[in-house]
Write a protein that binds this DNA or RNA. Structure first.
Length: 869
RNA sequence: GGGAGCAUAGCUCAGUUGGUUUAGAGCACCUCGUUUACACCGAGGGGGUCCGCGGUUCGAACCCGUGUGCUCCCA
């Protein structure tokens, strides 16, 4: 097969992807082999592929492809998440564009539009994953709202309710005024915001014109104040405790109370207490039996509690209230203040604490085994530093608010009768059976949906129908899964809760290893985001560079456990690597017509092959251990170096036949096999080009994608060392040529003075070729008017026609001498230290003595060389 | 405010239980080079007070303390 001049990824990529799918290589069924199961972190059904997905899924594909080539039975399950808030927001926006208001639709009508939208746009992202080469088992594509999945989520709700682990309660929640729904704590993003601290004085209900001043960043909440609280030991206010004050503008009378919760140093030391709109105030209110006055409507506008601002947004009121307080004489001062404000993860609205009746999961009992599983390393986190983060959260865990005031999602299976009694069962029919008392009563189902994560925590179980059809053959074979690859951002949202669900419903952990990827940032270290516009178009990049180059670029820049600073130059490096791979194959194929079966195997070629075999085996072992520790980036770098430097720059040059010369059949075949092995090693990282070249090299009996790795052969250390010596000598001599400005075309005569002539004799042909020497001979004494190069204890004399630049030679030798003498001094210092000689381990001592001997010998060599100049 | 982590070449990172050469790699940079694989290339080279200070030790990039700077998580 003739190779084209250049590698053309666009044709090759789609050809092989289709081929792999057609052959069913990605499809898994339970069998006798060990399972290697990975479930994809299901992207939002609304999602389009971004750099984060690219990194995450490339890593998964590397692990899965490698497992396949190691003879395991890998199963990588694709799918999408219904993403309740995000999707509902998109559907609402789409309807608005069509001029339809959500409020004008019934629930069923709205869901009709939502499904329509999902069928049309949902899953675009899954198509995009194919372009990247992901070896997902498409026959298993799942969705968190598939019918069976939906039933499982409901089943879990009912079960946890019956176990007393789910309850309904009026509590302070995070309210998203844009989506008009409750949020869990994890869905709130805290950001620093420049605001104002308002010092507001409240007139006291005592004779005279006295005031008490409070400080707040949310002045609009004064309408919900039901007390002012001071520290009992605060001398400034002690005398006011038990008295009353008036809320400015509305003149409502509120008590002044004392509690040691108050920080005397903060603000004025007096706190306005608004139990309806702050969690701490709420707790304080509970303790002191304070009234709760709500001031906000669902959409964040003020209600009748603030008569002068009804219908105005609370942030708008914050801007205008200062003037009004000023007018009423209540504003003491305004100062700049930086504080932390919560924003909705999905809508970016400023979150308002709000008292609300919601459904909760009691997390304490669920958390215990899940914490233990990670702390005992039954589940291993990579990098392990995330264990701390996890422990910290799990130990301080709070109950999980799971109800969302949305329609798109799993509807809460709770029914209410007219008196407000609650009945929980999987459907109304079931309620009627379980609760005969409901006979004749009208029941209404809870309007709310469950938090998205209340379904995704079942993902590793339900993709194998482990909830809807417990104990089936697949769940028993594929569960627990092997490795979860995900972003550290969702360690609480998802990872922790999957572990809880796994322990609760399977009695087993859901996965053995969790690999946390870094966050993808731009060159300047900023997180990639839509608003910054610093997120590159991934599909455009794949078109431009090819999927392999993108995979290479993103992996080479992702050190384990660190963030990834995305820079297009690494994709260029990937593309260049593609070219290198392609050209090396072209070179090999060029020799094919000149294969000779006659004659003996040349000695130098035999050495080259032995050396490369040793180097290959040693590197395979290294790569193996790196991958076991999830050091994927380092493994790729190692393979890159093996191919580019050791195979292409050294090995191929060593065995390269002269101009129009033949190549020995053994050498040719061995070189092809080496290359094939290299392609196989690289395949999990760059699947397309390796498959293409695997077939281009020779007629193959199987595809690389499913070709199992051979056992690694033993490393011949002696040959490895001889090769290293050869490389070093070549480099030193080339350096000498360069420094003496000997033209590359000019052949030199080389004289070697060494105690190990046999070593050099075995490699002299290679050496001659690599440094362009027309002759090599061995000598016992110095050669006149030559360039002297000292390497270790050996000396090399280069004889060229050109005049020798004695000065620069001398300079180099002196530099080397200074270095060696400095080194010797440090070694001698150590060895003359009695305590070192007494305390150091014998092997350390031996090493130091050898260092000294070597240094002395080298100094001797350099001095001799200098003397000859 | 509480917690975690990081600081090594211009950049991104390795550096295993403290001793394996006076610290390595890739990219970038500089010099030279178009001999039939590849200029998306080849050969060679330069470049570091291992963040500062103090300590432990015969010996510290590595261990301890402290300061500074940065990042992340939680409230």
């Amino acid at each position: 097969m003739e190779l084209s001049k250049n590698f053309n990824p666009s044709e090759v990529d789609s050809k092989w992807y289709q081929h792999w799918v057609d052959r069913g290589y990605f499809h898994s069924e339970p069998n006798d082999k060990p399972a290697y199961t990975v479930v994809i972190p299901p992207p939002n059904v609304t999602g389009v592929l971004h750099m984060g997905h690219c990194l995450n899924n490339t890593i998964q594909d590397i692990l899965v492809r490698r497992a396949r080539m190691q003879g395991m039975n890998p199963c990588w399950v694709p799918g999408t998440d219904h993403a309740s808030i995000a999707t509902e927001a998109k559907v609402v926006a789409m309807l608005r564009e069509r001029g339809i208001a959500k409020s004008s639709l019934s629930r069923d009508e709205f869901l009709g539009y939502a499904w329509e939208w999902k069928e049309k746009y949902g899953g675009i992202i899954l198509q995009q994953l194919r372009k990247m080469g992901c070896s997902l088992d498409w026959d298993r594509t799942s969705f968190t709202m598939d019918p069976a999945y939906y039933e499982s989520v409901i089943k879990v709700f009912v079960d946890l309710y019956e176990k007393g682990k789910i309850y309904r309660g009026k509590r302070m929640i995070n309210w998203d005024v844009r989506a008009k729904t409750a949020l869990s704590d994890e869905e709130v993003i805290h950001k620093e915001v420049n605001g104002k601290m308002y010092h507001i004085r409240y007139k006291l209900d005592i004779p005279g014109d006295e005031f008490i001043t409070i400080a707040t960043v949310r002045p609009e909440t004064i309408f919900g104040d039901t007390a002012i609280c001071v520290h009992p030991k605060d001398d400034r206010y002690k005398h006011l405790v038990g008295k009353f004050a008036f809320v400015p503008m509305i003149n409502r009378r509120i008590p002044i109370i004392a509690d040691d919760y108050i920080d005397i140093e903060f603000g004025t030391g007096a706190l306005k207490v608004t139990p309806a709109h702050d969690i701490n105030d709420f707790n304080l209110g509970q303790k002191h039996g304070l009234e709760v006055i709500e001031t906000l409507n669902e959409d964040g506008t003020m209600n009748e509690a603030a008569p002068m601002y009804i219908g105005k947004d609370r942030l708008e009121v914050r801007k205008i209230i200062a003037a009004d307080l000023e007018a009423s004489g209540n504003l003491v001062k305004l100062e700049d203040y930086v504080n932390q404000v919560g924003f909705s993860e999905r809508t970016d609205a400023v979150v308002e604490p709000r008292l609300s009746l919601q459904w909760w999961v009691d997390m304490k009992k669920l958390a215990a085994p899940a914490l233990e599983a990670v702390m005992s390393d039954e589940i291993q986190f990579h990098p392990a530093k995330f264990k701390n983060v996890y422990r910290h959260w799990m130990e301080g865990i709070k109950d999980w608010c799971i109800s969302r005031q949305l329609w798109w999602g799993h509807r809460i299976p709770a029914w209410y009768d007219e008196e407000g009694n609650v009945y929980v069962a999987k459907n109304e029919e079931e309620v009627r059976i379980k609760f005969p008392a409901t006979k004749g009563k009208t029941l209404t189902q809870d309007a709310d949906c469950l938090d998205t994560w209340f379904s995704s925590w079942l993902w590793p179980i339900e993709v194998f129908k482990g909830m809807s059809n417990p104990n089936n053959g697949e769940i028993n074979y594929y569960y627990p899964t092997s490795t979860l690859v995900t972003a550290p951002e969702i360690i609480f949202f998802w990872v922790a809760r999957m572990i809880m669900a796994g322990e609760e419903y399977m009695g087993k952990i859901p996965f053995k290893d969790v690999y946390f990827t870094g966050i993808v940032r731009d060159k300047q270290g900023r997180k990639m985001s839509k608003s910054l516009g610093n997120s590159p178009d991934l599909l455009g990049l794949i078109d431009q560079y090819g999927a392999d180059a993108v995979r290479f670029g993103i992996m080479i820049a992702s050190p384990a456990g660190n963030d990834l600073l995305f820079d297009e130059s690494t994709l260029e490096q990937g593309r260049n690597f593609n070219s290198k791979l392609w050209n090396a194959a072209k070179l090999l194929k060029m020799w094919e017509p000149r294969i000779s079966h006659e004659g003996k195997l040349p000695e130098d070629a035999a050495f080259a092959m032995d050396w490369f075999q040793a180097k290959l085996s040693a590197t395979q072992i290294e790569v193996d251990s790196m991958l076991k520790e999830f050091r994927l980036s380092e493994a790729l770098k190692t393979i890159y170096g093996l191919i580019w430097d050791d195979y292409c720059s050294w090995y191929l040059e060593w065995i390269k036949p002269g101009f129009e010369q033949n190549i020995h059949a053994d050498v040719y075949n061995r070189s092809i096999d080496f290359y094939d092995t290299l392609l196989q090693l690289l395949h999990p990282f760059m699947p397309f080009i390796t498959e293409e070249l695997h077939h281009a090299l020779k007629t193959q009996t199987e595809d690389l994608c499913v070709k199992e790795y051979e056992p690694i052969s033993k490393v011949d250390e002696a040959v490895l060392n001889a090769g290293a010596l050869l490389k070093n000598v070549i480099s030193s001599l080339r350096d000498a040529r360069n420094k003496n400005q000997i033209k590359p075309k000019e052949a030199i005569d080389l004289h070697i003075q060494s105690a190990q002539n046999d070593t050099y004799k075995a490699i002299q042909n290679i050496l001659a070729k690599q440094i362009n020497a027309k002759s090599i001979s061995f000598t016992d004494s110095a050669i006149a008017s030559s360039i002297v190069v000292a390497y270790e204890k050996d000396k090399f004399y280069l004889v060229a026609e050109q005049a020798i630049n004695t000065e620069s030679l001398k300079e180099n030798l002196l530099k080397d001498l200074a270095h060696q003498e400095g080194f010797l001094a440090s070694v001698e210092k150590k060895l003359s230290n009695e305590k070192f000689v007494q305390n150091a381990k014998p092997e350390v001592l031996a090493v130091e003595q050898k260092k000294k001997a070597d240094a002395l010998a080298r100094i001797q060599t350099i001095k001799e060389s200098l003397a000859q100049l």
